[in-house]
Amino acid sequence: MRVKVKIVCRQCGERYVLRGKKERGKIETGFKQCLCNNQSQFDIEEDPF
């Protein structure tokens, strides 16, 4: 199932809006890290298309 994902970095506040796949309760977007090199501290919100 395709979902729209909103990601906000907790360190610098940068926002990203991506499309991803939701399979077995896990979302995969390919997003790895923020521009500030943060790799783990994010607020993630999903919206179905």
Rank of each mutant, 00 (worst) to 15 (best):
C9N: 09
I44D: 04
E14H: 13
C36S: 06
T29K: 06
G25V: 05
V17Y: 06
Y16K: 07
M1C: 01
C36I: 03
G13F: 07
K21N: 12
T29F: 04
P48T: 04
K22T: 03
R19Q: 05
K32Q: 13
R10N: 15
Q41G: 06
R24L: 06
V3W: 04
E23W: 00
G13E: 08
K4T: 11
C12R: 06
K32A: 03
C34W: 08
I44A: 02
Q41Y: 11
K21D: 13
R24G: 13
E28W: 04
D43I: 14
G30D: 07
D47G: 00
V3I: 13
I7C: 07
C34S: 04
M1Y: 03
L35D: 10
K6G: 05
C9M: 12
L18V: 03
Q33R: 14
G25A: 08
L35V: 08
I27C: 05
V8Q: 14
E14F: 06
N38R: 02
G20Y: 04
L18S: 01
R24P: 00
E14Y: 03
C12Y: 03
S40C: 10
Y16I: 00
R15N: 08
L18W: 01
K4V: 11
S40L: 07
Y16D: 03
V3T: 09
N38S: 09
P48R: 09
R10Y: 09
E23S: 06
K32M: 08
G20F: 01
C34M: 07
F31C: 02
Q11I: 14
L18F: 01
V8H: 05
Q41W: 11
S40N: 13
N37R: 11
P48D: 12
E23Q: 09
L35P: 00
I27G: 02
Q11G: 00
M1E: 10
V5K: 05
G20H: 00
Q11F: 09
R10P: 00
K21P: 00
N37T: 10
K22S: 10
M1Q: 09
F49Y: 09
Y16E: 02
E45Y: 14
V8M: 11
E45R: 12
R19L: 07
